[in-house]
Design a protein around this nucleic acid. Sequence first.
DNA 1: CGGCGAATCTAGACACTGTCAAGTTATCTT
DNA 2: AAGATAACTTGACAGTGTCTAGATTCGCCG
Lengths: 212, 212
Amino acid sequence: MSDTPARSKPVPRKAAYHHGDLATALIDAGEAELREKGIEGFSLRGVAKRAGVSHAAPAHHFGDTNGLLTALAARGFERFLARQDDFKRAAAPDPRAQLSAAGVGYVNFALENPALFRLMFSSDRPEFETAVLDQAATQGFMTLVDGVSQITGTDPWADSAAMRQVSATWAIAHGVADLLVSGRLKIVGGMDPQTRNAEIAAMIDPVIPAAR
Amino acid sequence: MSDTPARSKPVPRKAAYHHGDLATALIDAGEAELREKGIEGFSLRGVAKRAGVSHAAPAHHFGDTNGLLTALAARGFERFLARQDDFKRAAAPDPRAQLSAAGVGYVNFALENPALFRLMFSSDRPEFETAVLDQAATQGFMTLVDGVSQITGTDPWADSAAMRQVSATWAIAHGVADLLVSGRLKIVGGMDPQTRNAEIAAMIDPVIPAAR
DNA sequence: CGGCGAATCTAGACACTGTCAAGTTATCTT
DNA sequence: AAGATAACTTGACAGTGTCTAGATTCGCCG
């Protein structure tokens, strides 16, 4: 979406005063800061220092700290969906296997990006009303609704039992992810990745709706 | 536990300089601060101001901010378990109904104390190695293990399938709670309490193990 | 090609935060 | 009654987010 070679941005410079593409550089730096310090140690000045600019530079691109966190969360949701797609592609094509794979991808993303996951789901700081973030955050739910719909052959928006299955599927994946991120479920957390994913699937699968 | 009339504390004073029982007063103030400002707006100086003492007074009782948050989390877990017991007492005595009620209590506590719930499950700030907090946090898991054990007649510590059912039960309750707290699951969140609890139970119950 | 408006970034200041050190006041012990 | 100890205050320091004003560079229009 942002890879039009000319035009969009004047190609990153090595310039001194004008950075060239500071906005994305700040997002990169912010992601590193988040990963290393966690949400609760996240500092806007620290991000600026990482990017090699003055402490007030981020404000011009993101307004305030929450603005940058909003951008980070939006990018997080994109990667989140991409990670689920990774697991889907590696799974059998039938709808139940696809939904199960998405769930395992959900949990794996959380384990791979714990601080980002918390920013996306357990923080009040990102402004979720922002168009770009709201859309990114909603899209995952839409594909989930779609997945259940393909299995059951019903429209969850019109069938409250199907919508309940949507919620339950989401909840089991999210619950496993969040408990693992916060260091609970130590038994599962300590497994090697392969058997761990099998264990995760074994927890999720019973909740996934049966084919109609 | 702390209601021995004499001895334990010199009975709250109206004194000026020495507060009498500042430690619990700070926990009360801290809980109010947490409720109103959330974790991310929590300020130790704000807590001191609420309690009417100087900004450095809390340090003498709790060390640093994380020390107070640790105490808050510990008290949170006590209330958490008590709230689950409330729901258990109001439910049928058979083991499955008891476990289901505990799950609904789990979610209700989260909805009633969103910031405290996040402190307990989505924050790195409390020191979970602290004896009092570690014990309080572990106790819930123990009763959960016990509940599954009573239903299945097996010992989850010796039966990996039963332990998986423990994890899954925890995960579905936790997932529903966390998604509701963070404002996802708007459909469920918007219901009136009674039908909402029925909906929560309907999501949880299929995950609860069947009787042996 | 030159200059001018606008975008980009820096520098400084302010109020606020958590934490530390030193001093003050009350309680407890003997 | 006096000295020791615990409880609390005051002041200071570095770090934070955000605001303002100023400096630098880019892009465009002539």
